[in-house]
């Protein structure tokens, strides 16, 4: 079966006066129908940039330099203008981090929902309003028939994010890109939103790209996980395997520095140093200057990659686990 989204060797370039920066480098992964793929990494790892490339929202001068993006078997990375606009909303829904800034404060939420539906679906105004109320009910907004005529400021943060999810799903897209959907929310509201996202996508068979820095959210929501570092995919696999038995030294260090994983220990595991700047990437594997397992050949170019979208860790000397085949 063709995956809903298939990214192959995606590279994003930003030309600047001081040379070309490469925030996303040779990234490949698939998302199957109904699957939630978690994309994790620290700030500047390129996880949001890859998501923006899929939906055609790269800010110039950033552009896709090479690689292919296929949605349901159709190539979409070269689409421009109106073709791309039709795709957005109709086939790809987007949920951003800040629910306040992703809604228009001057429009009633019902109008924002019907606008999206009328743009993408062949239905009447009254039918669209009916569907808008149904969509709000589905995301768990109490009294949807009345609240449909409220403005965004009349909702709390968690309720606003529900509206944004309703908005992303209202044209029945086959892929949702959720970029840090719960980062601005409290723990209890976060749990509600994650549960909602999981339920809706399972019911409709929507594929989800869940971009986050929170390992706990990934563990609970995702089926598979892609770990990014300095623009490159470092590890890809089933969420349980990657989180409990990471093969890439970076994933291993990241898990160790999570306070949750080191309960009762006096000190957290530290990865020395910081992520390299994009204009000063080291030769070979981008992680080797910080890596405890680095050897002489880690500086050789080209560095390790997962360019076929298969395999586990982009590393010349991955950790050895006996229990993982």
């Amino acid at each position: 079966m063709t995956p809903t989204l298939s990214i192959r060797n995606l590279t994003v370039d930003i030309p600047t006066r001081h040379g070309t920066l490469r925030p996303v480098q040779d990234v490949s992964y698939d998302i199957a129908q109904g699957e939630i793929l978690g994309v994790v990494g620290e700030s500047g790892a390129g996880k949001s940039m890859a998501g923006n490339a899929v939906i055609g929202l790269l800010n110039p001068p950033a552009h896709i330099a090479s690689g292919e993006i296929h949605l349901n078997g159709t190539r979409i990375d070269h689409l421009q203008g109106d073709d791309m606009r039709r795709l957005r909303g109709q086939q790809i829904g987007m949920v951003f981090q800040d629910p306040l800034t992703s809604l228009n404060p001057l429009l009633k939420i019902g109008d924002q929902l019907t606008e999206t539906m009328l743009a993408h679906l062949d239905i009447s105004q009254s039918e669209a309003r009916k569907r808008a109320i149904a969509a709000l009910e589905e995301v768990g907004i109490p009294g949807a028939a009345q609240r449909v005529d409220s403005y965004p400021h009349e909702f709390s943060g968690g309720m606003r994010q529900r509206v944004v999810i309703a908005l992303a799903l209202c044209a029945e897209p086959s892929l949702i890109i959720a970029d840090e959907p719960t980062t601005a929310l409290d723990v209890s509201v976060q749990a509600q939103i994650i549960a909602l996202l999981k339920r809706l996508c399972r019911d409709r068979g929507t594929a989800v790209m869940l971009i986050t820095h929170d390992m706990g959210v990934i563990a609970e929501a995702a089926d598979r996980v892609a770990v990014m570092y300095a623009g490159q995919l470092t590890e890809l696999g089933a969420v349980r395997d990657v989180l409990t038995a990471p093969l890439h030294p970076y994933t291993d260090g990241l898990m160790g520095s999570t306070p949750l994983a080191s309960r009762g220990k006096a000190r957290l595991h530290q990865i020395p140093g910081a992520m390299p700047r994009l204009d000063a990437l080291p030769d070979g594997c981008a992680f080797h200057p910080r890596c405890p397992r680095a050897q002489a050949d880690c500086v050789r170019n080209p560095g390790p990659t997962l360019s076929d979208g298969q395999g586990r860790a982009a590393c010349f000397h991955p950790l050895v686990r006996e229990d993982v085949a």
């Binding site: 723990v187 509600q192 994650i194 929170d214 706990g216 563990a219 349980r240 898990m255 999570t258």
Partner: peptide, 16 residues
């Protein structure tokens, strides 16, 4: 209960 857990793979809890 609501806090995400690292070993909570596919955990289905009733959200608060």
């Amino acid at each position: 209960a609501a806090a995400p857990q690292l070993d909570g793979f596919g955990r289905e809890v009733a959200p608060p």
